[in-house]
Nucleic acid binder design. Structure first.
Lengths: 115, 115
DNA sequence: TCGCTTATTCGATGGCCGTCGTAGTATTGC
DNA sequence: GCAATACTACGACGGCCATCGAATAAGCGA
């Protein structure tokens, strides 16, 4: 099961049932955070924090990851010095049926149009 | 065609094709605006501005209507001194497939849970 | 052990937006 | 024409949030 050479550092994740619609929308209304989500969705695999293509500093990016994690959108785990990020798609689907995929699709289209 | 005892005052509405996902999300991230949308969806008919149940002043409410209208979410038209509001559901569905209904459903559930 | 890489924390800053009250405009009905 | 109703426009205020740089921590490899 990947055996991520596991680390001592752990990360807390909320139960999606405890995430409000307000929290979810506030997380996804930010263009940078939506870019992060889009890149995760497109990759189809977990991505480390530093490999995202976003126009903000690293410290700002850390902030955005925190917001996304606390909104139940992503799951994070350490692998050595790097921190991996994964979408919690199935859980979001349970919590807000249809919302997440529609949003990801809209974000994908939005990214393609000014091509 | 309804013949709303028509008025001189007209209202501008954007083409939904010109509404960005960003604009759409910014409109719906505000709890008051989402309440307005929920009440419109639940009513199933057009509602005048003054009959909404929201915890803000009238001038603030006007502001929220402007934001919703400019985001393509609602259509407004005058009937005498009152201004009616309608959801642009079909058009939103064309622009962002699946997104609007999923959001309305989530908002409905959110309004019911702390019942 | 000593850097190198990766990511976090902290405090400061700037801008944007939701809110309000007041004054103003349009329409109806007397 | 006048008053009443329904909504709008304007300016001000306050708070929140995205952003940054610098300092810190933690793991990896030589």
């Amino acid at each position: 099961m990947a055996r991520p050479r596991s680390s001592a550092r752990t990360v807390d994740h909320p139960d999606v049932a405890d995430v409000s619609l307000q929290q979810f929308l506030e997380a996804l209304v930010d263009p940078v955070r939506r870019t992060v989500v889009s890149q995760l969705a497109r990759a189809g695999k977990d991505i480390s924090c530093g490999t995202f293509d976003v126009p903000v500093s690293l410290s700002t990016l850390t902030h955005h990851f925190n917001v996304l994690r606390e909104a139940g959108v992503i799951r994070q785990y350490y692998v050595g010095t790097t921190k991996m990020n994964a979408l919690r798609m199935e859980e979001m689907e349970e919590r807000f049926p249809g919302l997440f995929p529609a949003l990801v699709a809209a974000a994908r289209d939005a990214a393609e149009s000014p091509l």
